[in-house]
Amino acid sequence: MTVQTQNLKWVQLCQRGDLVAESGVAARLEDQQLALFYLPDENRVYAIDNHDPFSQANVLARGLIGDLHGEWVVASPIYKQHFRLTDGQCLEASEVQLKTWPARLNNNNVEIALAL
């Protein structure tokens, strides 16, 4: 993803301590629900839409994460489709792609970027 930093506004969602290593938690931002996945070994956080389009439930933060063909994915806990953490692409249905946000750890703050 090439995003111009100056067009982004970083907002804090929670603290590093709220995250669970190699697993997900859900956070809210106004009407949006985000699933945050934390990879401590890479010191990375991924933020993707918490809404599972197949079950219509807000559950992706509670899915298991892992790698398939070398890429990080989350498996929906309901019908088990896989979504790529980097860009939200569903591996089982090419037409389905979830919203993602640039996310980072800023010291102990967990932040995502919103386009201005």
């Binding site: 190699e22 892992g66 790698d67 088990k80």
Partner: peptide, 10 residues
């Protein structure tokens, strides 16, 4: 190899 998935982890 790799990090695991929703099959092998559980």
């Amino acid at each position: 190899r790799g990090h695991g998935c929703d099959i092998c982890k559980p």
